[in-house]
Design a protein around this nucleic acid. Structure first.
Lengths: 213, 213
DNA sequence: AGAAAAATCCCCTGAAAAGGGGAGGCGGAG
DNA sequence: CTCCGCCTCCCCTTTTCAGGGGATTTTTCT
Protein backbone atom coordinates (compact mmCIF):
# COMPACT_ATOMS: atom_id res chain seq x y z
CA UNK A 1 0.00 0.00 0.00
CA UNK A 2 1.44 3.29 -1.08
CA UNK A 3 0.80 6.26 1.11
CA UNK A 4 1.68 9.80 0.29
CA UNK A 5 4.25 11.04 2.73
CA UNK A 6 3.37 13.92 4.99
CA UNK A 7 4.94 17.17 3.86
CA UNK A 8 6.26 19.01 6.90
CA UNK A 9 7.35 22.63 6.95
CA UNK A 10 9.50 23.89 9.80
CA UNK A 11 9.47 27.42 11.20
CA UNK A 12 12.11 28.11 13.82
CA UNK A 13 14.82 30.68 14.21
CA UNK A 14 17.35 28.26 15.68
CA UNK A 15 19.49 26.56 13.04
CA UNK A 16 20.21 23.80 15.50
CA UNK A 17 16.59 22.98 15.95
CA UNK A 18 15.92 23.01 12.24
CA UNK A 19 18.84 20.69 11.64
CA UNK A 20 17.75 18.50 14.49
CA UNK A 21 14.19 18.18 13.39
CA UNK A 22 15.18 17.65 9.81
CA UNK A 23 17.62 14.93 10.84
CA UNK A 24 14.97 13.25 12.95
CA UNK A 25 12.29 13.41 10.29
CA UNK A 26 14.46 12.32 7.40
CA UNK A 27 14.81 8.99 9.10
CA UNK A 28 11.07 8.55 8.90
CA UNK A 29 9.89 7.46 5.44
CA UNK A 30 6.32 8.57 5.93
CA UNK A 31 7.45 12.13 6.54
CA UNK A 32 9.10 14.49 4.12
CA UNK A 33 10.58 17.85 5.06
CA UNK A 34 9.18 20.22 2.48
CA UNK A 35 11.19 23.19 3.63
CA UNK A 36 11.89 25.52 6.50
CA UNK A 37 11.90 29.17 7.43
CA UNK A 38 13.66 31.10 10.14
CA UNK A 39 11.27 34.03 10.15
CA UNK A 40 7.53 34.45 9.95
CA UNK A 41 7.98 36.55 6.82
CA UNK A 42 9.86 33.90 4.91
CA UNK A 43 7.36 31.33 6.06
CA UNK A 44 4.52 33.34 4.58
CA UNK A 45 6.60 33.78 1.45
CA UNK A 46 6.92 30.04 1.08
CA UNK A 47 3.21 29.48 1.28
CA UNK A 48 2.51 31.86 -1.60
CA UNK A 49 3.50 29.26 -4.17
CA UNK A 50 3.96 26.10 -2.21
CA UNK A 51 2.23 24.26 0.52
CA UNK A 52 2.62 21.55 3.12
CA UNK A 53 0.51 19.32 5.29
CA UNK A 54 1.87 20.09 8.72
CA UNK A 55 3.76 23.10 9.99
CA UNK A 56 6.08 22.75 12.96
CA UNK A 57 6.17 26.18 14.43
CA UNK A 58 8.23 27.70 17.19
CA UNK A 59 6.32 30.12 19.38
CA UNK A 60 9.21 32.52 19.60
CA UNK A 61 10.10 34.01 16.27
CA UNK A 62 12.14 37.12 15.71
CA UNK A 63 9.67 39.05 13.60
CA UNK A 64 6.26 37.85 14.74
CA UNK A 65 4.92 35.72 17.55
CA UNK A 66 4.15 32.17 16.59
CA UNK A 67 0.66 32.75 17.88
CA UNK A 68 -0.02 35.48 15.37
CA UNK A 69 1.60 33.56 12.54
CA UNK A 70 -0.59 30.61 13.42
CA UNK A 71 -3.67 32.80 13.13
CA UNK A 72 -2.65 34.17 9.75
CA UNK A 73 -1.82 30.79 8.31
CA UNK A 74 -5.06 29.20 9.47
CA UNK A 75 -7.06 32.05 7.95
CA UNK A 76 -5.46 31.55 4.57
CA UNK A 77 -5.11 27.78 4.63
CA UNK A 78 -7.65 26.22 6.89
CA UNK A 79 -6.53 22.72 5.93
CA UNK A 80 -3.07 23.31 7.26
CA UNK A 81 -2.25 21.55 10.51
CA UNK A 82 -0.07 23.48 12.86
CA UNK A 83 2.01 21.99 15.62
CA UNK A 84 3.41 24.45 18.13
CA UNK A 85 6.92 23.92 19.38
CA UNK A 86 8.55 25.56 22.32
CA UNK A 87 10.84 24.84 25.20
CA UNK A 88 8.59 26.45 27.74
CA UNK A 89 5.48 24.63 28.82
CA UNK A 90 3.70 27.79 29.90
CA UNK A 91 0.05 27.07 29.83
CA UNK A 92 -0.96 30.50 28.67
CA UNK A 93 1.05 30.15 25.46
CA UNK A 94 -0.30 26.71 24.82
CA UNK A 95 -3.81 27.95 25.30
CA UNK A 96 -3.37 30.93 22.99
CA UNK A 97 -1.84 28.74 20.34
CA UNK A 98 -4.74 26.31 20.40
CA UNK A 99 -7.20 29.17 20.31
CA UNK A 100 -5.58 30.37 17.12
CA UNK A 101 -6.16 27.07 15.43
CA UNK A 102 -3.10 25.04 16.25
CA UNK A 103 -3.67 21.31 16.33
CA UNK A 104 -1.15 20.55 18.99
CA UNK A 105 1.88 21.44 20.95
CA UNK A 106 5.12 19.63 21.65
CA UNK A 107 8.01 20.69 23.82
CA UNK A 108 11.51 20.96 22.47
CA UNK A 109 12.64 18.18 24.74
CA UNK A 110 10.29 15.81 22.98
CA UNK A 111 11.78 12.58 21.75
CA UNK A 112 11.91 11.65 18.10
CA UNK A 113 9.12 9.19 18.70
CA UNK A 114 6.87 11.78 20.21
CA UNK A 115 7.55 14.25 17.44
CA UNK A 116 6.84 11.74 14.71
CA UNK A 117 3.79 10.48 16.52
CA UNK A 118 2.48 13.99 16.96
CA UNK A 119 2.92 14.79 13.29
CA UNK A 120 0.98 11.71 12.27
CA UNK A 121 -1.76 12.38 14.76
CA UNK A 122 -2.11 15.99 13.73
CA UNK A 123 -2.08 15.10 10.07
CA UNK A 124 -5.08 12.90 10.69
CA UNK A 125 -6.91 15.85 12.10
CA UNK A 126 -6.45 14.83 15.68
CA UNK A 127 -4.94 16.88 18.45
CA UNK A 128 -1.70 16.29 20.22
CA UNK A 129 -0.37 17.86 23.39
CA UNK A 130 2.90 17.06 25.04
CA UNK A 131 2.20 15.66 28.48
CA UNK A 132 3.82 18.63 30.21
CA UNK A 133 2.16 21.12 27.90
CA UNK A 134 -1.24 19.56 28.44
CA UNK A 135 -0.70 19.64 32.15
CA UNK A 136 0.38 23.25 32.03
CA UNK A 137 -2.71 24.11 30.02
CA UNK A 138 -4.97 22.38 32.50
CA UNK A 139 -3.29 24.22 35.33
CA UNK A 140 -3.81 27.50 33.54
CA UNK A 141 -7.49 26.77 33.14
CA UNK A 142 -7.72 25.86 36.81
CA UNK A 143 -6.03 29.09 37.75
CA UNK A 144 -8.42 31.14 35.73
CA UNK A 145 -11.30 29.41 37.40
CA UNK A 146 -9.83 29.95 40.83
CA UNK A 147 -9.65 33.67 40.43
CA UNK A 148 -11.59 35.40 37.72
CA UNK A 149 -11.82 37.91 40.51
CA UNK A 150 -10.30 41.07 39.22
CA UNK A 151 -12.35 43.40 37.10
CA UNK A 152 -11.02 45.55 34.28
CA UNK A 153 -11.02 48.69 36.33
CA UNK A 154 -9.36 47.01 39.26
CA UNK A 155 -6.66 45.75 37.01
CA UNK A 156 -6.03 49.24 35.72
CA UNK A 157 -5.80 50.58 39.24
CA UNK A 158 -3.55 47.73 40.24
CA UNK A 159 -1.18 48.44 37.38
CA UNK A 160 -0.86 52.04 38.49
CA UNK A 161 -0.36 51.06 42.10
CA UNK A 162 2.45 48.77 41.01
CA UNK A 163 4.00 51.71 39.22
CA UNK A 164 4.13 53.52 42.52
CA UNK A 165 1.30 56.00 42.06
CA UNK A 166 -0.74 57.13 45.05
CA UNK A 167 -4.51 57.22 45.13
CA UNK A 168 -4.78 60.89 44.15
CA UNK A 169 -2.32 60.37 41.29
CA UNK A 170 -4.23 57.36 40.05
CA UNK A 171 -7.47 59.31 40.33
CA UNK A 172 -5.98 61.94 38.06
CA UNK A 173 -4.87 59.41 35.48
CA UNK A 174 -8.20 57.65 35.34
CA UNK A 175 -10.33 60.77 35.67
CA UNK A 176 -12.12 59.49 38.73
CA UNK A 177 -12.09 60.59 42.34
CA UNK A 178 -9.56 59.42 44.88
CA UNK A 179 -12.40 57.84 46.83
CA UNK A 180 -13.17 55.59 43.93
CA UNK A 181 -9.59 54.59 43.57
CA UNK A 182 -9.60 53.77 47.23
CA UNK A 183 -12.65 51.59 46.77
CA UNK A 184 -10.90 49.66 44.04
CA UNK A 185 -7.81 49.40 46.16
CA UNK A 186 -9.83 47.97 48.99
CA UNK A 187 -11.46 45.45 46.68
CA UNK A 188 -8.06 44.38 45.47
CA UNK A 189 -6.75 43.95 48.99
CA UNK A 190 -9.77 41.85 49.86
CA UNK A 191 -9.80 39.77 46.67
CA UNK A 192 -6.12 39.07 46.59
CA UNK A 193 -5.97 38.55 50.32
CA UNK A 194 -3.25 41.11 50.83
CA UNK A 195 -3.12 43.22 53.93
CA UNK A 196 -1.13 46.12 52.57
CA UNK A 197 0.30 47.67 49.43
CA UNK A 198 3.52 45.70 49.57
CA UNK A 199 1.74 42.37 49.61
CA UNK A 200 -0.55 43.58 46.87
CA UNK A 201 2.31 44.51 44.56
CA UNK A 202 4.13 41.27 45.31
CA UNK A 203 1.08 39.26 44.48
CA UNK A 204 0.45 41.19 41.30
CA UNK A 205 3.98 40.76 40.02
CA UNK A 206 4.35 37.15 41.05
CA UNK A 207 1.07 36.20 39.45
CA UNK A 208 1.58 38.31 36.38
CA UNK A 209 -1.59 40.27 36.87
CA UNK A 210 0.04 43.30 35.30
CA UNK A 211 2.08 43.81 32.16
CA UNK A 212 5.74 44.83 32.01
CA UNK A 213 8.59 43.19 33.83
CA UNK B 1 48.67 17.08 6.54
CA UNK B 2 46.75 14.86 8.87
CA UNK B 3 45.16 16.46 11.88
CA UNK B 4 43.41 14.66 14.65
CA UNK B 5 39.77 15.59 14.59
CA UNK B 6 38.31 17.32 17.61
CA UNK B 7 36.27 15.00 19.78
CA UNK B 8 33.12 16.77 20.85
CA UNK B 9 30.79 15.62 23.58
CA UNK B 10 27.29 17.02 23.77
CA UNK B 11 25.27 17.52 26.94
CA UNK B 12 21.70 18.66 26.39
CA UNK B 13 18.34 17.37 27.45
CA UNK B 14 16.65 18.21 24.16
CA UNK B 15 16.82 15.38 21.64
CA UNK B 16 16.20 17.88 18.88
CA UNK B 17 19.22 19.90 19.81
CA UNK B 18 21.42 16.85 20.08
CA UNK B 19 20.29 15.67 16.68
CA UNK B 20 20.73 19.12 15.27
CA UNK B 21 24.21 19.61 16.57
CA UNK B 22 25.25 16.13 15.60
CA UNK B 23 23.91 16.70 12.10
CA UNK B 24 25.74 19.99 11.84
CA UNK B 25 29.00 18.66 13.16
CA UNK B 26 29.02 15.45 11.17
CA UNK B 27 29.31 17.55 8.06
CA UNK B 28 32.55 18.95 9.39
CA UNK B 29 35.49 16.57 8.88
CA UNK B 30 37.68 18.18 11.51
CA UNK B 31 35.08 17.49 14.17
CA UNK B 32 33.90 14.18 15.49
CA UNK B 33 30.96 13.69 17.82
CA UNK B 34 32.29 11.43 20.53
CA UNK B 35 29.00 11.03 22.29
CA UNK B 36 26.21 12.77 24.06
CA UNK B 37 24.33 12.81 27.32
CA UNK B 38 20.93 14.10 28.29
CA UNK B 39 21.66 14.42 31.98
CA UNK B 40 24.56 15.61 34.06
CA UNK B 41 24.76 12.19 35.66
CA UNK B 42 25.20 10.31 32.41
CA UNK B 43 27.70 12.91 31.30
CA UNK B 44 29.82 12.24 34.36
CA UNK B 45 29.40 8.55 33.73
CA UNK B 46 30.82 8.90 30.26
CA UNK B 47 33.93 10.66 31.46
CA UNK B 48 34.81 7.84 33.83
CA UNK B 49 36.20 5.73 31.03
CA UNK B 50 36.24 8.00 28.04
CA UNK B 51 37.13 11.52 27.26
CA UNK B 52 36.73 14.29 24.70
CA UNK B 53 38.32 17.55 23.72
CA UNK B 54 35.38 19.89 23.84
CA UNK B 55 32.09 19.64 25.69
CA UNK B 56 29.05 21.45 24.36
CA UNK B 57 26.94 21.97 27.40
CA UNK B 58 23.44 23.30 27.87
CA UNK B 59 23.01 25.46 30.96
CA UNK B 60 19.64 23.98 31.74
CA UNK B 61 19.84 20.34 32.60
CA UNK B 62 17.21 18.35 34.41
CA UNK B 63 19.36 17.02 37.24
CA UNK B 64 22.06 19.63 37.75
CA UNK B 65 22.72 23.13 36.55
CA UNK B 66 25.19 23.39 33.72
CA UNK B 67 27.17 25.78 35.86
CA UNK B 68 27.74 23.18 38.55
CA UNK B 69 28.48 20.46 36.04
CA UNK B 70 31.02 22.75 34.44
CA UNK B 71 32.73 23.21 37.77
CA UNK B 72 32.89 19.50 38.48
CA UNK B 73 34.23 18.64 35.04
CA UNK B 74 36.92 21.30 35.14
CA UNK B 75 38.08 20.10 38.55
CA UNK B 76 38.53 16.56 37.30
CA UNK B 77 39.70 17.30 33.80
CA UNK B 78 41.36 20.66 33.61
CA UNK B 79 42.29 20.14 29.96
CA UNK B 80 38.69 19.85 28.95
CA UNK B 81 37.29 22.81 27.05
CA UNK B 82 33.70 23.64 27.82
CA UNK B 83 31.40 25.61 25.58
CA UNK B 84 28.15 26.72 27.17
CA UNK B 85 25.00 26.58 25.12
CA UNK B 86 21.72 28.21 25.90
CA UNK B 87 18.89 30.04 24.28
CA UNK B 88 18.82 32.74 26.86
CA UNK B 89 21.45 35.38 26.60
CA UNK B 90 21.14 36.25 30.27
CA UNK B 91 24.35 37.84 31.29
CA UNK B 92 24.40 36.43 34.78
CA UNK B 93 24.45 32.87 33.48
CA UNK B 94 27.19 33.65 31.01
CA UNK B 95 29.25 35.19 33.75
CA UNK B 96 28.75 32.30 36.16
CA UNK B 97 29.65 29.84 33.46
CA UNK B 98 32.88 31.59 32.62
CA UNK B 99 33.75 31.83 36.30
CA UNK B 100 33.43 28.08 36.56
CA UNK B 101 35.97 27.55 33.85
CA UNK B 102 33.97 27.52 30.66
CA UNK B 103 35.89 28.62 27.59
CA UNK B 104 32.97 30.17 25.81
CA UNK B 105 29.30 30.51 25.28
CA UNK B 106 27.15 30.28 22.19
CA UNK B 107 23.45 30.85 21.84
CA UNK B 108 21.13 28.23 20.47
CA UNK B 109 20.30 30.40 17.53
CA UNK B 110 23.93 30.27 16.44
CA UNK B 111 24.58 29.28 12.85
CA UNK B 112 26.49 26.18 11.91
CA UNK B 113 29.44 28.35 11.00
CA UNK B 114 29.52 30.02 14.36
CA UNK B 115 29.23 26.75 16.20
CA UNK B 116 32.02 25.12 14.23
CA UNK B 117 34.17 28.22 14.54
CA UNK B 118 33.61 28.37 18.26
CA UNK B 119 34.58 24.74 18.70
CA UNK B 120 37.82 25.25 16.84
CA UNK B 121 38.63 28.40 18.74
CA UNK B 122 37.93 26.84 22.09
CA UNK B 123 39.91 23.74 21.21
CA UNK B 124 42.91 25.96 20.62
CA UNK B 125 42.56 27.29 24.13
CA UNK B 126 41.00 30.54 23.08
CA UNK B 127 37.74 31.96 24.27
CA UNK B 128 34.59 32.41 22.29
CA UNK B 129 31.47 34.38 23.15
CA UNK B 130 28.45 34.74 20.95
CA UNK B 131 28.00 38.40 20.07
CA UNK B 132 24.74 38.61 21.98
CA UNK B 133 26.10 36.66 24.92
CA UNK B 134 29.14 38.89 25.16
CA UNK B 135 26.94 41.92 25.08
CA UNK B 136 24.69 40.50 27.78
CA UNK B 137 27.70 39.82 29.94
CA UNK B 138 29.00 43.35 29.57
CA UNK B 139 25.59 44.71 30.45
CA UNK B 140 25.48 42.56 33.56
CA UNK B 141 28.84 43.89 34.68
CA UNK B 142 27.64 47.43 34.06
CA UNK B 143 24.56 46.79 36.13
CA UNK B 144 26.50 45.51 39.08
CA UNK B 145 28.69 48.58 38.97
CA UNK B 146 25.69 50.86 38.81
CA UNK B 147 24.19 49.66 42.05
CA UNK B 148 26.08 47.78 44.70
CA UNK B 149 24.06 50.10 46.89
CA UNK B 150 22.05 47.93 49.21
CA UNK B 151 23.57 46.71 52.44
CA UNK B 152 22.93 43.31 53.99
CA UNK B 153 20.56 44.64 56.57
CA UNK B 154 18.65 46.69 54.05
CA UNK B 155 18.25 43.64 51.89
CA UNK B 156 16.82 41.71 54.81
CA UNK B 157 14.38 44.47 55.55
CA UNK B 158 13.47 44.74 51.89
CA UNK B 159 12.71 41.05 51.68
CA UNK B 160 10.33 41.32 54.60
CA UNK B 161 8.68 44.42 53.18
CA UNK B 162 8.11 42.52 49.95
CA UNK B 163 6.45 39.80 51.96
CA UNK B 164 3.97 42.34 53.20
CA UNK B 165 5.21 42.86 56.72
CA UNK B 166 4.83 46.24 58.40
CA UNK B 167 7.59 48.04 60.23
CA UNK B 168 6.58 46.74 63.68
CA UNK B 169 6.34 43.20 62.33
CA UNK B 170 9.74 43.46 60.72
CA UNK B 171 11.16 44.89 63.92
CA UNK B 172 9.92 41.81 65.74
CA UNK B 173 11.47 39.44 63.26
CA UNK B 174 14.84 41.12 63.27
CA UNK B 175 14.90 41.94 66.98
CA UNK B 176 15.38 45.63 66.39
CA UNK B 177 13.13 48.61 67.01
CA UNK B 178 10.52 49.82 64.55
CA UNK B 179 12.43 53.06 64.31
CA UNK B 180 15.42 51.24 62.95
CA UNK B 181 13.32 49.41 60.44
CA UNK B 182 11.96 52.74 59.38
CA UNK B 183 15.47 54.08 58.93
CA UNK B 184 16.32 51.18 56.66
CA UNK B 185 13.10 51.66 54.79
CA UNK B 186 13.94 55.29 54.22
CA UNK B 187 17.40 54.38 52.99
CA UNK B 188 15.90 51.93 50.57
CA UNK B 189 13.45 54.46 49.26
CA UNK B 190 16.27 56.92 48.73
CA UNK B 191 18.74 54.47 47.22
CA UNK B 192 16.30 52.82 44.89
CA UNK B 193 14.66 56.08 44.02
CA UNK B 194 11.21 54.90 44.98
CA UNK B 195 8.72 57.23 46.52
CA UNK B 196 6.54 54.67 48.26
CA UNK B 197 6.27 51.04 49.23
CA UNK B 198 4.63 50.01 45.98
CA UNK B 199 7.45 51.37 43.87
CA UNK B 200 9.95 49.81 46.25
CA UNK B 201 8.44 46.35 45.94
CA UNK B 202 8.17 46.67 42.17
CA UNK B 203 11.78 47.64 41.90
CA UNK B 204 12.88 44.84 44.18
CA UNK B 205 11.01 42.17 42.27
CA UNK B 206 11.86 43.44 38.82
CA UNK B 207 15.53 43.70 39.65
CA UNK B 208 15.63 40.44 41.55
CA UNK B 209 16.93 42.03 44.71
CA UNK B 210 15.09 39.44 46.74
CA UNK B 211 14.79 35.69 46.50
CA UNK B 212 11.62 33.76 45.63
CA UNK B 213 9.33 34.35 42.70
C1' DA C 1 -37.26 43.88 31.96
C1' DG C 2 -34.96 42.73 36.08
C1' DA C 3 -31.27 40.98 38.83
C1' DA C 4 -26.41 40.95 39.50
C1' DA C 5 -22.10 42.91 39.05
C1' DA C 6 -19.24 46.70 38.37
C1' DA C 7 -18.03 51.42 38.83
C1' DT C 8 -18.65 55.59 40.91
C1' DC C 9 -18.62 58.58 45.17
C1' DC C 10 -18.71 59.80 50.22
C1' DC C 11 -18.17 59.45 55.48
C1' DC C 12 -15.39 58.02 59.53
C1' DT C 13 -11.20 56.36 62.49
C1' DG C 14 -6.81 54.58 63.44
C1' DA C 15 -2.57 52.69 61.64
C1' DA C 16 1.25 52.91 58.74
C1' DA C 17 4.32 55.19 55.82
C1' DA C 18 6.84 59.39 53.93
C1' DG C 19 9.88 63.13 54.86
C1' DG C 20 12.60 65.86 57.77
C1' DG C 21 15.77 66.17 61.40
C1' DG C 22 19.48 64.39 64.94
C1' DA C 23 22.55 61.07 67.47
C1' DG C 24 25.52 57.33 69.41
C1' DG C 25 28.27 52.90 68.83
C1' DC C 26 31.15 49.93 66.04
C1' DG C 27 34.16 48.14 62.60
C1' DG C 28 36.96 48.42 58.67
C1' DA C 29 40.11 51.35 55.36
C1' DG C 30 43.22 54.67 54.85
C1' DC D 1 44.24 56.81 64.91
C1' DT D 2 40.66 58.89 62.47
C1' DC D 3 37.19 59.01 59.20
C1' DC D 4 33.44 56.88 56.98
C1' DG D 5 29.82 53.64 56.29
C1' DC D 6 26.68 50.80 58.59
C1' DC D 7 23.49 49.81 62.14
C1' DT D 8 21.05 51.34 65.76
C1' DC D 9 17.53 54.48 67.95
C1' DC D 10 14.58 58.63 68.66
C1' DC D 11 11.88 63.08 67.73
C1' DC D 12 8.60 65.65 64.82
C1' DT D 13 4.75 66.48 61.00
C1' DT D 14 2.04 65.36 57.01
C1' DT D 15 0.36 62.20 53.80
C1' DT D 16 -1.28 57.88 52.49
C1' DC D 17 -3.31 53.57 53.51
C1' DA D 18 -6.39 50.13 55.87
C1' DG D 19 -10.85 48.97 57.55
C1' DG D 20 -15.47 49.87 58.48
C1' DG D 21 -19.53 51.67 57.00
C1' DG D 22 -23.21 53.42 53.10
C1' DA D 23 -25.02 55.06 48.60
C1' DT D 24 -25.85 55.91 43.56
C1' DT D 25 -25.43 54.97 38.68
C1' DT D 26 -24.09 52.32 34.79
C1' DT D 27 -23.10 48.01 32.65
C1' DT D 28 -23.84 43.33 31.91
C1' DC D 29 -26.05 39.14 31.72
C1' DT D 30 -29.92 36.48 31.65
Amino acid sequence: MIEKSIRVFIVDDHPMVIEGMTAMLQQTPSIEVAGYAMTAASCLGYFVNQTADVVLMDINLPDMSGIDLCKVLKQKFSDLRILGISNLSQGSYVQEMMKQGASGYVLKNASKEELVGAIHKVNQGKQHLSPDAGQAMRKEIEKQKEMPLITKREKEVLALIVQGLTNPAIADKLFISASTVDSHRKSLLAKLDAKNTAALVSYALNHHLVEEE
